[in-house]
Design a protein around this nucleic acid. Structure first.
Lengths: 109, 109
DNA sequence: TCGTTTAATCGCAATGTTACGATTAAATAT
DNA sequence: ATATTTAATCGTAACATTGCGATTAAACGA
């Protein structure tokens, strides 16, 4: 049918999937890396930085904002975006825990 | 147009996005968690473990295998799956580095 | 050999994602 | 007030993902 059956999975599994989805597009990866690199807030020049049209970038920013990974402040005619460090930390904790699962011995049969 | 413009992003950005995509569905998260939990190889009972139809699980396994995160060994009429620990470690390194970007001070404007 | 078991593949319907031109909205500048 | 700048939203086309019934393929057992 095309829609993920989220109801049969745990809260945690769905949360991991949602965060992962946010990183599942190179444009969003690039936007986040840019926000980190600038080390503060970026006012307006994100469209020039990434090579996509303005509405496209706006859509990606909306998704990241909706997930709480970035914040946007209106500054005159521009909007300044930055990483939401609190939420980023929480997300990092969840994802790191998932990635750090480990195996004692993995001799596949 | 509906297809990601991978050509305008770096190799690294695309790689992060590809791995993240793999975790972008709760079924694949659940499959991986199960393989870790069992701590070895799982022969056949993945479909019973997750609540999805056999062709659907097979498709998810195919994606994970294609990315190199799991291995599958034919064992009679069954197929045994397990985590590919070498590739998992490499992926973990890449994803951890992305998640661990940090900011000195993040007073948003 | 023939049925049984198990997983992969095919085909398709429903839904989601990506991208962007056109437009709108909001703040500023003249 | 009007023009300008900048970002959000709308609408839509192209493509991708998800899910599963039906079928096929491969190995095993009787």
């Amino acid at each position: 049918m095309g829609l993920a059956k989220t109801e049969i999975f745990t809260e945690s599994q769905n949360e991991i999937a949602l965060f992962a989805k946010a990183f599942g597009h190179p444009a969003r990866v690039a936007i986040l890396q840019h926000l980190f690199k600038v080390d503060g807030c970026v006012c307006g020049d994100i469209v020039d930085e990434i090579g996509l049209a303005q509405p496209t970038i706006s859509q990606h920013l909306k998704e990241l904002k909706h997930l709480g990974l970035i914040k946007g402040n209106v500054e005159g005619t521009r909007v300044c975006y930055c990483i939401d460090t609190d939420n980023w930390s929480k997300m990092k904790e969840i994802m790191t825990q998932f990635l750090n699962q480990d195996i004692s011995e993995t001799a596949c049969c």
